[in-house]
Design a binder for these strands. Sequence first.
DNA 1: CGCGTAGTTGAGTCGCATCAAGTGGAGTGG
DNA 2: CCACTCCACTTGATGCGACTCAACTACGCG
Lengths: 241, 241
Amino acid sequence: MTPLSPDPAVLRGLRLFSGLDAAALAEIVRSAQTRRIEKGTTIFSQGDRAALCHALIDGRVKIAQTGADGQQLVVRYIGGGEMFGTAAVFSGGIYPADALAMVDCVGVHWTAATMGELMERHPRIALNALDIVGRRLQEVQTRLRELSTERVERRVAHALLRLARQAGRRVGNGVEIDFPLSRQDIAEMTGTTLHTVSRILSGWEGQGIVEGGRQQVTIRQPHALVAIAEDLPRPGKPEEK
Amino acid sequence: MTPLSPDPAVLRGLRLFSGLDAAALAEIVRSAQTRRIEKGTTIFSQGDRAALCHALIDGRVKIAQTGADGQQLVVRYIGGGEMFGTAAVFSGGIYPADALAMVDCVGVHWTAATMGELMERHPRIALNALDIVGRRLQEVQTRLRELSTERVERRVAHALLRLARQAGRRVGNGVEIDFPLSRQDIAEMTGTTLHTVSRILSGWEGQGIVEGGRQQVTIRQPHALVAIAEDLPRPGKPEEK
DNA sequence: CGCGTAGTTGAGTCGCATCAAGTGGAGTGG
DNA sequence: CCACTCCACTTGATGCGACTCAACTACGCG
């Protein structure tokens, strides 16, 4: 909750503000609130009035939806440079999911009214937001199709590849997901159970494709994972005739 | 393809243009192209360059995504007053799905460049678009959760209720979906097979909850369908202790 | 050192996809 | 006007992927 002095250079990195001139950025910085967010903090909760537009300078935030019977779905993981909770402000004014800091984060936010004025004055911001939300819509639609038509193993492979792209860190023997990620989290991303995820990862670990630890996954053979995700023929898994 | 004289009063009904003054509407009308679209016409195809923003004055359009292996997913049905294909224009420039006219329609469209200028000049349009796309994102996320966590029967019930809300017409003995809808279509909305949908509808028909026909469904007891969708206890289906 | 949380692994079950016929009504052509 | 042909739909039989139930293990933290 410690307020920090916002840095214009940092805000320039946000997709939401790309293409704006220095004067506009200065205005945006003036109206921004920056703060540290401790690991485990709930930034907003499903059903809350959406009073703030958020963006993440650094860290990792989980956006998750809860069903009537307590079932959880991980909607997405937000990384540095991404906005979140902003679509809700302009679409009904209620956050449709929870936002939870997975690690210590640095966040920035604007009030709904301020962001509205900024967008009116600088349509480019609204256009950027439309771009971002449109891409997320496409991504979620793609996941919807995967969930409808693919077996669990392929969905888990897709999920890990997506995570590697968004939150992968190159390490000696592959690509590591750079935040604590449990089997349960993966299950909630792919619509399965932690048991099934555990079995699948164990299988892959036996084949040297991934390496798992407590709340931690490293991909050692990304190409093999792509082969599984795309359902390509591959060694050890002969096509039935 | 017959061009028609666009009518300002008609465009006022589009959510995308709500809150605009008469001058702005006049400008929008001048730059619009209106046309009749025959049933069965493909308005755009997945992978095409997104050159046009569309809206539907009247009729019904199916937005469907195809996977690499030909698997189909119905993303949504568009009705009169709704825009479609617009998010794609501002998010990558490629349509992520097919748009197919389910009945004879009247559509209107703008070029990407024209709509971009309109939004720059009238930020309210961009805000409206953000609102609409944000709501669709929420809806798709909700479907994603349903697909992850609910059994087929509940998902079909949810899909029918959603359709009834968007495309329902009150008739003597219930609510009828007002466009041709096959079992296959329902299956592609809910991530199942037409066989399973057929079995479920037959079961419901036996209980008097729905009435089915060829590419046609009438809901006779909406409350019963809600009970199924929400997994409430109900007569004939005792809770196991 | 003990407790809690995360993960592993086995056995059993079942929901639903898959395979496989068949029915009936709408549209078409002779 | 009737026969033919689709196409949407129905319904039965079968199999299996993955969920459920149930221990058990191991790591990290206080």
